[in-house]
Design a protein around this nucleic acid. Sequence first.
DNA 1: CGATCTACCTGATGGC
DNA 2: TGCCATCAGGTAGATC
Length: 279
Amino acid sequence: MPELPEVETIRRDLQGEVVGRKVKEVAVKNGRSVRRHSSAKQFRSLVEGRVIKSIGRAGKNLLLGLDNGDTLVVHLGMSGQLFRAKNANEPKVVHTHVIITFTQGGELRFVDPRTFGELFVSHPAEDGTELPELAKLGFDPLEDVISWPDLARKLASRHTTLKTLLMDQEFVAGIGNIYADEILFAAGLRYDRGSDSLSSQEVRRLSRAMVETLTEAVKRRGSSLADSQYRDLFGEVGDYQGQHQVYDREGQPCRRCRNRIVRVKASSRSTFFCEHCQT
DNA sequence: CGATCTACCTGATGGC
DNA sequence: TGCCATCAGGTAGATC
């Protein structure tokens, strides 16, 4: 579900809600959500008593900086949600797998029907600040602005399709199935163009489209699809879905040229595009 | 090595 | 109504 704009929206919500708070207790209701750890007990011991000092993001990962230098990493997978609760009396929705209670009151709840998401505590590497589990992530399109000549070099070094590359977290971190299609439409490029086939003008368009599409989606607090599964920290839906140009618009007229939006399967994922506007 | 498939889950939807 | 197939924002690991 959540891609960079949704995760960034939750990051900003968390900034105002949990920074400076001390963890009193962690309750793990479903051990699968902390599967990187040997046990739920071990995970709890790494989080309980810690103060949350900062909230960062790397691609689709939320990074909760703890006061001992560790980082609590949250990945929402396909269906993960984080909710703020005022107290334990607030009714729990089904699939509430982890509950973090703060000493000053209030809870942070991790809800995840499909259980593809996870939480884990990461220790920084000996020599640097980098987290070993995230070392292979590519650049972040909003945090690390990359020059278009650099992007051109990176694109040319790979032999695959544009969409595959945009969704490859080791190439660029944070783009998933929705925003890959939206970025490619904004850039006027087909999903199946070879990544090493772009003119310099096309690379510039792609570079701009990436930053502009994601920035605008963050402004509108992300995309909630028909099932409204994506919600922010306060349970509110996003507002960017109405701006989608191609995603989930099969058969509907292209907002630019009025031709019907086409849907195809590419590497077993739905891909939406306009055959007229994207070449 | 890199590209592609499969498994991991629950729930919503649509055809018959 | 119900039953079954298909689909869904992601990604690690197997397989080719």
